[in-house]
């Protein structure tokens, strides 16, 4: 369905110039990975070397091995925790955001305008002080030290709700909803069949963003979890627990920890490919 032939797509056919521009962007995007790999494949002094070779050294595997097998790091437990936390958070954020976005974008209810403004306003509150009250709240609820304390505050985000609202208001034709309702679909079935389908490309991206953000999140998990039950950034931060930090180990460890994300990218990438709704609208 997503693979409809697209002959006169978008704003034109790509010229070699477009490919050249995108290639520049791609090289720029990949640079940090390559640079991390360069440092991660050297030794502790590589990062401070004035004549950094653009050819990697030979220590990547041993550095990665050392980072992972450091007993204090607790890598495997952290990996499992990170997968749990990121997956649950991403799935829940996508579902609940799409649900709320569907309501805000396409359903009519009293107070929807002010409520949407309220959602957006919550994003404008600076979070730098939030850690203390949030900790107090989690502690009163008895959730500290558990993955729940990381997952629950992130189950749905204002960002996600706002995005899905805007996306669906554009991508989901109101006629379709009307048609579905005329056919006797309940509200939730309408959401299920139309809302979720229409939202798919944006939802896939929201999932990717949420997963990545959660995956890299350090500070809150650091406060509320401990080394016995960490997420990956909390566990890997131990590699920096020294007066002189060996960044070849840190970057090798970080790169290994990024691999699951890259794998996820390869799978999710296909979901982003295309406008499912054209088919639906026409059909």
């Amino acid at each position: 369905m997503a693979r409809r032939t697209r002959t006169s797509i978008g704003t034109g056919r790509p010229t070699p110039f477009v490919y050249a521009m995108l290639a520049v962007v791609l090289v720029g995007s990949m640079f940090p990975f390559y640079w991390s790999f360069l440092i991660g494949s050297g030794d502790a002094s590589t990062i401070y070397s004035q004549n950094l070779s653009w050819w990697p050294g030979g220590n990547f595997l041993s550095n990665a091995q050392e980072a992972i097998s450091n007993p204090a790091v607790n890598f495997w437990k952290a990996l499992v925790n990170s997968i749990i936390v990121s997956t649950v958070t991403a799935a829940s954020t996508v579902f609940l955001s799409t649900l709320a976005g569907f309501a805000f974008a396409k359903l009519r209810f009293k107070g929807s305008g002010p409520l949407l403004v309220a959602v957006i306003a919550t994003m404008a509150v600076p979070v730098q002080l939030g850690v203390v009250p949030l900790y107090i709240a989690m502690s009163k609820l008895g959730w500290t030290g558990t993955l729940g304390a990381v997952i629950i505050p992130a189950l749905v985000t204002a960002f996600g709700v706002f995005w899905m609202t805007q996306y669906l208001s554009q991508a989901l034709p109101t006629e379709l909803i009307e048609a579905a309702r005329v056919d006797g679909c309940s509200m939730i079935r309408t959401f299920w069949h139309l809302g979720l389908t229409a939202a798919r490309p944006a939802a896939a991206m929201l999932a990717l963003f949420t997963f990545t953000t959660t995956w890299n999140n350090f500070f809150w998990p650091f406060i509320v979890l401990d080394q016995q039950n960490p997420t990956l950034p909390v566990a890997l931060s131990l590699l920096q627990a020294n007066y002189f930090v060996d960044y070849s180990l840190v970057l090798a460890g970080v790169l290994v920890a990024t691999l699951p994300l890259l794998i996820l990218f390869i799978f999710t990438g296909r979901q982003l490919v295309s406008g499912i709704m054209q088919g639906a609208v026409k059909g």
């Binding site: 962007v25 995007s29 990949m30 940090p32 990975f33 350090f218 840190v250 970080v254 990024t258 390869i266």
Partner: peptide, 14 residues
């Protein structure tokens, strides 16, 4: 498409 998102994936420390 995935390429342009790579910078977002890089760990903050890097």
């Amino acid at each position: 498409r995935m390429g342009v998102l790579l910078p977002y994936v890089v760990a903050p420390v890097a």
